[in-house]
Design a protein around this nucleic acid. Structure first.
Length: 232
DNA sequence: AACTTGTTCAACCGCTACTGT
DNA sequence: AACAGTAGCGGTTGAACAAGT
């Protein structure tokens, strides 16, 4: 049986104090990132390595942008979500200075609602005619609808029940896209920000396009999804 | 002003993938 | 090949705050 990642009895939990933040910053400035398991003890922190890693990545990293999302960032998140699903780390990789946690929270608290109010199902990015057939763009979603949706993402029709490796997950998304019951039309996205993205995240998107465009000659230029049309 | 309800977001948890032995 | 340890991911939780009554 595997040991727990840390001795829970001897670790702090909950919000980080300024002193803890400073210890973590000082340690990483001196020693760099990595070896999270041994970091807390080395840095004099009563936290588990996982907690330190998350605090650094989501809050303390000097290259974080923070603050409100720009309109182009919103558009990109929506496009990428249509393409990748809830692969928040991949989506965040295309948004310089943003973290997966931040993108995920922003999606759940803002963008989901925005899409629903536009009459678009945020799960599959299709127009949601059956919910509001007469005027989908003017529909105002109820709070209960939003909260129930955000609390039940694991049961989303297009999402795998549980995460697997990236390749598997990308394949799942691809197969989902090819499924008429929940799929987007084939996509040809211009996924760019003004800031040059990292090469690794580019590779992921390229890989995804290869999967979406099998040798059968699937035409990527065909009908764009409703969500994408809204931003053209 | 006090209370209730809703929203946001930092942090945690459990799981899987990856890597080394 | 099998196992153990670690890193990273996505879903979920709960405290803090805001808005409404």
């Amino acid at each position: 049986m595997r040991k727990p990642c840390c001795d829970k009895q001897d670790t702090n939990k909950g919000a980080w104090s300024k002193q803890e933040d400073q210890k973590l910053i000082d340690y990483i400035r001196t020693h760099g990132e990595g070896c999270w398991r041994s970091l807390p003890q080395a840095a004099g922190l009563l936290r588990c390595g996982k907690s330190c890693r998350l605090r650094w990545i989501n809050y303390l990293r000097p290259d974080l942008k923070r603050g409100n999302f720009a309109e182009d960032e919103e558009e990109l998140i929506i496009k990428l979500h249509a393409l990748l699903g809830n692969r928040w780390s991949l989506i965040a990789g295309r948004l310089p200075g943003r973290t997966d946690n931040e993108v995920k929270n922003y999606w759940n608290s803002h963008l989901r609602r925005k899409l629903i109010n536009m009459g678009i199902d945020p799960n599959n990015h299709r127009l949601n005619n059956h919910i509001h057939p007469s005027s989908p763009s003017k529909r105002v979603v109820s709070d209960s609808e939003i909260s129930s949706g955000s609390k039940n993402q694991a049961t989303q029709s297009c999402q795998p029940a549980k995460s697997h490796g990236d390749n598997d997950r990308v394949s799942d998304a691809a197969s989902c896209l090819e499924d008429d019951t929940c799929a987007l039309p084939d996509l040809n996205l211009d996924l760019t920000m003004t800031t040059i993205p990292s090469s690794s995240s580019l590779a992921v998107v390229e890989e995804r396009h290869q999967i979406a465009e099998p040798d059968t000659g699937t035409e990527l230029e065909s009908a764009p999804s409703p969500t994408l049309l809204l931003f053209r």
